[in-house]
Design a binder for these strands. Structure first.
Lengths: 347, 347
DNA sequence: ATGAAAGCGCTAACAC
DNA sequence: GTGTTAGCGCTTTCAT
């Protein structure tokens, strides 16, 4: 069908072994020979058959990446980073979507395991135990999930939270609502912990609400609940939720940032596109994808099943991006109070 | 390393050939034997090595999909549809990002060609000639690009435009600005054609502007230009651009939809999340991804290089989603005029 | 209905 | 420095 190593060998008047070497270990063949082989290969447009190579080396040159939901705008940039990094190391990436289903996640790992050298799972939904089981099937790297024994790429959420709280406190906010994400999620626990620590350290008074769905709709709900408490600022679990908060606030006649400040997490593309633009803690998504692939490649390359733990956990820095949804609180909370009353008078 | 067909054969007391048959062509083996083989396979957790199979069958069970930019919110849902459809036919999908570079696109096809059964390219940037050349390397299916001889999945843009124009006309709009996307893009030509036809048919007076970058920034620019012309409505190339228009309009004190109506294209997630929510022509992105994979699998399955042309072009329906950015124009364009003057008085 | 055996294209010992 | 050769795990004739 296609041009094989034999064709190249014949054309270059050498054996197939020499062709193979000239391509893979150039130092082992004489310069003249190598030149001849390379010329022949290029002339014929030879591309090694990866299946054949894989059969013998045991490596596929493929990496798997599993995301919970391709429709969630949080993941594409992770994919972008992962894809780009993999490509640089001439690896291909197999994409799969688990539909936020732990069982599906495991099934995907099981299927993929045979055809990849390793798998990156983004924000896995599976339990620790299941994840550990999957880790036996192939080399695993996690993004946004910490699990002893499995290397992972995390983002410095606590650090981001500290920056956000510092920003709000410096603006003069004292009463803050914090909207939680789903209880099962690692990132919810992480944010909560960060919030508690930062608030305690910096003397911010805050009330927790939730869990809410980490989506626009969750923000709608969250805003309703928070409005009742007459807070001057709302910190949302993520940007999607913050966008929902913004929308509900606008609908209730609460002005942002004059009446209430809003802070999100992630720094999605949309954060810059709404009016006012969202103040948010930027997550290094592309970097995370890239770091995860790096980690994977590193482990795959050097056959070391158990490495020292220090290299197992990458924590990437986050950064507060101040935009238009945060400002000093107005002297008194009257506006918010009346708006909240208005909303709930009928309910 | 792993469990092979030999292990299963030994366990089931049959030859490897029988195992192979029991799994692939169940009718060719006796019921009892098949049962024994299946049991052994399951017991050992046997998973056929796809590389080995691929080597002999010539099929990889992989599909490639190339998008111009993973960071663009238009593509993830196409990926979702493609991935899900491929998965249903037990194919894997190899993802690549061309960075909107025609050369990269071609390079990716060349690299992928060997390890996939076919490739879907979304909104390709390469020229017709180059695309045709790529089509010789592997089975190709295009999304959002029409090219004689290469099967493609398109969206009914003209139909969507007709709906949008009908909506605007019925609202009473007579002066419309239409913001074009990049001139090279197939979808720009398609929209322009649709707009001209719909406007002519329905008697809408419109002015074309652009090309603009099909992003938020392009919308910022576009709004500036359109405002000068004192139109009552703006139709943007896509949602990203429409969001930019919205933002600039808000910044200029032009109220939407009271002063100016805005219509986008795509129906991105964000279209529902801005305030007011965007009226837009929804593109069936997930369906397109799925349709493209279907087409690919169909062609790959039945080795027919040249099929009758009728099956080569799928046009998917689009639908206008009316939300908050469109309304009847105010009696007089005064407001817009003064706002536009304000903006440009200094420039 | 089942088994034996010949490769698919490539790499990795092992010879020379 | 280069060639020969034995498989990698699987499917598929060809016998039986």
């Amino acid at each position: 069908m296609s041009v094989t190593i034999h064709d190249v060998a014949r054309k270059a008047h050498v054996s197939v072994a020499t062709v193979s070497r000239a391509l893979a270990l150039p130092d082992l063949v004489a310069d003249a020979t190598r030149a001849r082989v390379l010329a022949a290969a290029k002339l014929l447009g030879y591309q090694p058959n990866r299946a054949a190579r894989s059969l013998i080396t045991g490596k596929t040159g493929n990496l798997g990446i599993i995301v919970p939901d391709l429709g969630n705008p949080f993941y594409p940039n992770i994919l972008k980073g992962a894809q780009s990094c993999a490509h640089q190391s001439s690896h291909s990436v197999l994409l799969a979507d688990s539909d936020e289903d732990p069982a599906q996640e495991e099934a995907l790992v099981r299927t993929m395991a045979k055809q990849v050298d390793g798998i990156v799972i983004c924000a896995p939904f599976a339990s620790d135990a299941r994840l550990l089981k999957m880790a036996e099937l192939t080399t695993l790297v996690l993004i946004n999930r910490s699990l002893p024994g499995v290397p992972s790429v995390l983002m410095d959420i606590a650090g981001g939270m500290t920056q956000a709280v510092a920003h709000l406190v410096s603006l003069g906010h004292r009463r803050c609502a914090f909207l939680n994400g789903p209880n099962i999620a690692w990132s919810t626990r992480e944010r909560r912990r960060g919030m508690r620590a930062a608030a305690a350290t910096q003397g911010l008074n805050f009330i927790e609400f939730g869990p809410f769905e980490p989506k626009f709709e969750g923000g709608l709900e969250g805003a309703d609940v928070a409005l009742k408490q007459n807070v001057t600022t709302i910190v949302a679990f993520n940007d999607l939720m913050a966008l929902g908060v913004l929308s509900r606030l606008a609908a209730c006649g609460v002005r942002v940032p004059q009446d209430v400040s809003v802070v999100g997490f992630d720094d999605l593309l949309y954060a810059t596109m709404c009016a006012p633009a969202l103040t948010t803690v930027a997550m290094p998504m592309e970097a995370a994808g890239s770091a995860a692939v790096h980690l994977l490649l590193e482990r795959v390359g050097s056959e070391q099943p158990e490495r020292n733990n220090s290299g197992n956990r990458h924590k990437l820095p986050t950064k507060l991006i101040v935009r238009g949804t945060t400002a000093a609180p107005s002297a008194r909370g009257t506006k918010v109070e009346s708006a909240a009353k208005r909303v709930y008078s009928g309910a």
